[in-house]
């Protein structure tokens, strides 16, 4: 079947199997930032924004995504300008192997788009579906706090 997706601002017509997942379609289209960690919705490495909400793309049938707006990690930066979350992840040492990082960034972007001043608990909740084995989450949580500060126009420490 043919589906229409607006991915990172560009609308495309894509062919997809009736039973294919959004994850498979996106990776086939070259969006390597969307990762396969488990394929069963347990690890969050495949997270993308679909119509503004962070979802496991491995759990979304391509047919359900048809007509929708998708944002992958590749769409967070504005040309050369990184998203404050990407800057903060780099500055805080929150990226180790980087495999869970795109999914984390997506979940965090969803959070900050709705809650500009999240508490630490709210950040942990927002990232609760993204598993990481390298970092122990500590610096990622800190990075989200720093990004939120920057996005609110706060001073860097």
């Amino acid at each position: 079947m043919t589906i229409t997706l607006t991915i990172n601002g560009t609308t495309r017509e894509l062919s997809a199997g009736a039973g294919e997942t959004l994850l498979e379609v996106l990776r086939r289209e070259g969006f390597t930032g969307v990762k396969t960690g488990c394929g069963t919705g347990d690890c969050g490495a495949c997270a993308v924004l679909m119509n503004g909400r962070a979802v496991n793309s491995c759990l979304v049938l391509a047919a359900k995504a048809d007509g929708g707006e998708i944002v992958t990690v590749e769409g967070l930066a504005d040309g050369d300008r990184l998203h404050p979350l990407q800057e903060a992840f780099l500055d805080e040492g929150a990226v180790q192997c980087g495999y869970c990082t795109p999914g984390m960034l997506i979940s965090a972007a969803d959070l900050l788009s709705r809650k500009p001043s999240p508490t630490e608990e709210e950040i942990k909740e927002a990232l609760s579906g993204n598993l990481c084995r390298c970092t122990g989450y500590t610096k990622q949580i800190r990075a989200v706090e720093r990004a939120a500060e920057r996005m609110r126009g706060g001073d860097d420490e």
Binding site: G41, G44, A47, M50, R53, A54, V55, N56, L59, V60, S107, D110, E125, A126, S128, G129, N130
Partner: peptide, 9 residues
């Protein structure tokens, strides 16, 4: 319930 990623779906 579950995770925010799944609750969104």
């Amino acid at each position: 319930v579950a995770s925010p990623l799944q609750r969104n779906l």
